[in-house]
């Protein structure tokens, strides 16, 4: 693993202290993301990091790239435009569960469908931390939140399965408990030429933990440990045993034509034709 000094070089240290609460897992994901960028050998000047709105979306302010903090749920359309304008750039999206699965859900499935070369890291803390812990489309069944005071009756998305069904060609999941596994999964997502999704389960002791008897950061990490299973072991579980468990590791990988490549082919084809055609 890269020494911390290398990671520091990718931070805007002057913007610290960050806004995240004590015990929040987002810092572990941000560190893993930067280790992944270093591991993938990306130059600082060749990456744009885009986010929407929420606690995790504030991460872009702390990293030393061209960074774009967009509107709630809209990171993917902006990122799509950047990638179309400059396909040579690496474009990563740091998104929260509410941002990407609720208000940005439509953009998410369509970006996956296009298989455009973007890397999405989902900070899944199971709630809207920025506004006080309300439930999101990834909040566990029966969980308590300020907007589900009697327990959540909505079945959450399995965002990884959703990404696969929609057409994503690299899908992985990990947790902040598995901090040693995480950077490599993100690095491979950055290397992958297509739409990559890395879901990371993370702790929000301030809200989700407080409302669901997981108040301390360590309890949240233990919960992640106890509810995650390596993909191979997960596949051997009965359907009942899978309930409430999260498969972790590389979940899906495929090769499919990438969107900006296909568009470049159209330009080449059309320009050859239009040069022949008298105007």
């Amino acid at each position: 693993m890269e020494p911390l000094s290398e990671v520091k070089d990718f931070l805007r240290i002057e913007k610290f202290p960050h806004i995240w609460c004590a015990g929040c897992g987002h810092g572990i994901i941000l560190q893993s993301f930067l280790r992944a960028v270093i591991d993938a050998g990306i130059d600082k000047n060749d990456m744009v990091v885009v986010s929407g709105i929420g606690c995790s979306s504030r991460a872009v302010g702390y990293v030393d790239f061209d960074t774009l903090h967009t509107a709630h749920g809209r990171a993917l359309p902006f990122a799509t435009g950047i990638k179309m304008a400059k396909p040579e750039l690496n474009v990563a999206i740091l998104a929260g569960d509410g941002d990407i699965a609720a208000i940005g859900g439509n953009h998410f499935i369509h970006a996956a469908r296009r298989n455009i070369d973007l890397t999405v890291v989902i900070f899944n803390n199971f709630n809207y931390g920025m506004t006080g812990g309300q439930s999101s489309p990834l909040t566990c069944l029966n969980a308590i939140a300020p907007t589900t005071p009697y327990g959540n009756i909505e079945r959450p998305f399995d965002i990884c399965s959703l990404a696969i069904a929609a057409g994503a060609t690299y899908v992985a999941r990990s947790t902040t408990y598995h901090a040693l596994q995480l950077p490599e999964l993100i690095a491979n997502g950055i290397r992958h030429h297509g739409f990559s999704v890395i879901e990371v389960l993370t702790g929000c002791p301030t809200y989700y933990g407080k409302f669901n008897s997981l108040r301390s950061p360590s309890k949240m990490l233990e919960w992640q440990r106890d509810h995650s299973v390596n993909l191979k072991q997960y596949q051997m579980l009965s359907e009942d045993a899978k309930e409430g468990k999260f498969a972790i590791g590389l979940i899906h990988s495929a090769e499919r034509p990438e969107y900006t490549d296909e568009y470049s082919k159209i330009i080449q084809k059309v320009q050859v034709v239009s040069q022949k055609e008298p105007r």
Binding site: V48, V50, L68, T70, A71, R74, L76, P77, F78, A79, T80, G81, I82, K83, M84, A85, K86, L89, N106, H107, I109, H110, Y263, I266, I267, V270, Q271, S274
Partner: peptide
Amino acid sequence: PEVGGKFMQMEDEIAGLGAILGASLAG
């Protein structure tokens, strides 16, 4: 595409504007 440009039909109206803002920020 005839002039080397790009066109995208997006999933909704908001995405249409979001995408052009991203492209514009890239110049």
